Amino acid sequence: MGKTRLEAFSDGVIAILITIMVLEMKVPHGGTLDTLLEVWPVFFSYILSFIYVGIYWNNHHHMLHTCHRVTGGILWANLHLLFWLSLIPFASGWVGENHFASAPAALYGLVLLMAAIAYFILQQQIIATQGPDSILKKAVGTDWKGKLSPITYATGIPLAFWYPLVSMALYVTMAMIWLIPDRRIEKVLRNHDA
């Protein structure tokens, strides 16, 4: 199977997730700036979640460029990733509406952890399918960000029950680290095509 349907389906799901997140934001009642201050946690959690979904979409796009054929294992691993990404709007809404309370902050971290694990599984499935000379395997290398992410989320989950704002700060830090463009896949693809 070619990868076109997989890419189109994934892009569609991710676009819907972003749309759902913005539609869940309720317009505050009142015409003063003070009314906006009341909803800042909701807006903040939306921005953070939008960034996370964008990071996954960007990296997913680059990762699929290294894939030449799609197997059933890749399809299921991709659905597994999309499942966890689909929970981001719910977790984002809960953490924002409850002003970063402990349980919502822990759930937010759990969703991020599971999405990171699902992404790793998809990555490994693609590497296994493409064989020992996999372009993705060459590009991934040591993948320090991929290893640091689950550790950070796993630390933030229990921490949320004592210091939820510190937990959220860990999630923000990880998003900022991932915002720095990772050119490994592009570099390997350029060298491979040359």
Rank of each mutant, 00 (worst) to 15 (best):
T32A: 12
W40A: 14
G54K: 02
L189M: 12
F50Y: 13
P132F: 07
Y153V: 01
K137F: 00
K3M: 03
Q130W: 02
V95D: 07
I16Q: 00
I121R: 11
G12R: 15
V140A: 05
L148Q: 07
A15E: 08
E24Q: 15
G146L: 12
S86L: 15
A105D: 01
G93W: 03
L48S: 07
N191L: 15
V39F: 00
L75G: 00
I20T: 07
W178Q: 06
Y163S: 14
G2K: 15
T129W: 06
F50C: 11
W94S: 09
P181H: 12
P89C: 12
H62V: 01
G31F: 12
K26T: 09
F9Q: 05
L179N: 00
L85T: 12
I18P: 00
Y153A: 04
Q130Y: 04
N59F: 00
G146D: 11
M1K: 09
A8C: 10
Y46I: 09
A169Q: 03
P132T: 08
Y171T: 05
L85H: 10
M63A: 12
G93Q: 08
H60V: 00
I127W: 02
F161K: 04
A118G: 13
H29P: 00
Y119G: 00
M114L: 15
L23H: 15
A105M: 06
L112A: 08
W94L: 14
K26Q: 13
V13M: 03
L48E: 06
A139C: 10
P158K: 10
N98K: 02
I127A: 01
T142K: 08
T66V: 04
I47S: 03
Y171K: 05
I121G: 06
G109S: 13
P104D: 03
P28D: 01
